[in-house]
Design a protein around this nucleic acid. Structure first.
Lengths: 214, 214
DNA sequence: GTCTATATCCCGATAGAC
DNA sequence: GTCTATCGGGATATAGAC
């Protein structure tokens, strides 16, 4: 796995190369095991070079998280965009969400387990908006005949369910079986269908209203 | 849970004190910001002392995670054990799960965001077994008239849903509103009710059989 | 069981040359 | 935009005294 043999980056796109290498490192050692120094070493540049492109370690991690958000959106789109029927669409999105988390664990962890302050990085939420709108909120709202608030409740419920399955899968809660991934995807899919089927419980739920004080 | 005395630890229970201090540190700086050195400093012992009680940093973190598992179980019990009706019981458990995650974020993160290898620490799963059995698997199975496999599917779906809501809440996905906690709890509760209501979608789903709880 | 002392290592980040 | 050189800091973990 030597990369030092050739030097494709010295006069190339170091910023992008750093993001790629960060993903590699996170995959190998986890988010905590990632460091600017090690990434520099792998790319054959000195430890000072990355700071021309990223203000600090967190900035590079945020760039990785941003890539994760767009890649996740694209992956779910591949799985669900061809499915027009709302119930199947949102269920396919849930399954695709879990699939991406497993197939791109490093990216997923950069987005959700890097300890990044999302409130300070609204661009991440922005990057994930099409995902939420097109594959969760949209179908959910049409399942409620256009009721926006009920649709949002269902969308968030399915999203949280997919997220929970993804996190538990990465945590090993589905066991060491080789098909733990397939199992988690099937369970997330079925749970989404169940939520759709029982969606009336979400419509009437008295949730704290969206905005009270501003 | 007292730390009143000035120096209760020098000849007291350093192991337990280290766990408490680790929780404090994680609450203040996150899991990544926790170190044996800083914990030692706070307790007024030298950096060598903790190694008489924990083999390494990960061992101390695992002890914190174990406490988290038992505390989580106890907290859910407080919220759901008095509720006999299966549907309300499992929904109360989901809500209690989210409440605990918010009220004890440091413990929850030690359990789920510390990067501990769960497969290498089966005692954590063991500690959470009563939680899964009594408040998820039990009621879910009775909702399926004793069908164990269908019950497990519903239990895992509700558990994953609660987990997803908890993780998203800690990630700030429910916004900076002061009642984000109450909202997340209400949503998890409603989603659990929805899953119960639409549980037929889970019974028929062809899922691989074996599963590890939690 | 705790302390003193220390070995060893790695990291983030910067200044200034080229 | 990258390199050289480096500062300053903090971490894990161990050896041996008490």
């Amino acid at each position: 796995m030597k990369r030092s043999a050739k030097r494709p980056y010295h006069h190339g796109d170091l910023a992008a190369a750093l993001v790629d290498t960060a993903v590699e490192l996170i995959a190998e050692r986890g988010v905590a095991g990632f460091s600017m120094a090690e990434a520099s070493r792998r790319l054959g540049v000195t430890v000072a070079a990355p700071y021309r492109h990223f203000a600090d370690r967190d900035a590079l991690l945020a760039a990785v998280a941003a890539k994760a958000a767009t890649d996740l959106t694209a992956a779910v789109a591949v799985e669900a965009s061809a499915v027009p029927e709302p119930t199947d669409r949102i269920a396919a999105a849930a399954r695709g969400y879990v699939r991406f988390a497993s197939a791109n664990a490093a990216l997923f962890q950069a987005l959700f387990a890097a300890g990044l302050d999302k409130r300070a990085r609204p661009e991440l939420e922005e990057a994930a908006r099409p995902l939420v709108e097109d594959f969760f909120h949209g179908p959910a709202t049409s399942l409620f005949d256009g009721d926006e608030q009920a649709g949002e409740a269902l969308a968030l419920a399915v999203l949280a369910t997919a997220h929970g399955h993804a996190m538990l899968l990465l945590d090993g809660a589905f066991g060491p079986d080789t098909d733990a991934v397939g199992q988690a995807m099937a369970r997330a899919h079925a749970a989404a269908l169940g939520l759709v089927s029982g969606r009336e419980a979400l419509r009437s739920a008295d949730l704290p209203t969206k905005v009270a004080g501003k």
